[in-house]
């Protein structure tokens, strides 16, 4: 079974969780032997942008010493052999081109998403 993980929601609880929980579960399932790929769409396309910095959060004496690092986590999936697709129109709408993205992510037009769906047995839209 090959699954396409579609991630749309972004920066929802990343500070509390120190990551995105769907990127995280993708890592965890891949580690458990899952055959999966990822499509970043909507606001989640920003996860592939280099230069994100979520450091420095502090509430009085409490300090976030291990902030989330989404570009690192996306790159980690690429390193594990997960194909990371990213919708071009969602990038463009947010003022992003193909530059400055994590190495290895693959831009696809929205019109190409049906073909991506066809190439996977199930589509899990989180």
């Amino acid at each position: 079974m090959k699954v396409l993980q579609v991630i749309e929601s972004a920066y929802r609880a990343t500070q509390e969780e120190q990551d995105d929980t769907i990127v995280w579960i993708s890592h965890a399932m891949k580690g458990a032997g899952a055959d999966l790929n990822v499509l970043l769409r909507g606001n989640a396309v920003n996860y592939a942008v280099d230069g994100q910095d979520a450091s420095g959060l502090a509430f009085s004496a409490w300090k976030q010493t291990q902030p989330p690092n989404m570009a690192r986590d996306v790159a980690g999936l690429v390193d594990k052999g997960v194909e990371i697709y990213i919708t071009e129109e969602d990038l463009a709408e947010r003022g992003l081109g193909g530059a400055g993205l994590v190495a290895g992510v693959k831009p696809v037009p929205r019109a190409g998403v049906p073909a991506l769906f066809a190439a996977h047995d199930q589509v899990w839209h989180w």
């Binding site: 749309e8 909507g42 929205r110 019109a111 998403v113 049906p114 073909a115 769906f117 066809a118």
Partner: peptide, 17 residues
Amino acid sequence: DVGHYFDLAEGLARGGD
């Protein structure tokens, strides 16, 4: 994003699904 989802439905149908 709902509009994009309707577009996706159309795209799949156009492709014969």
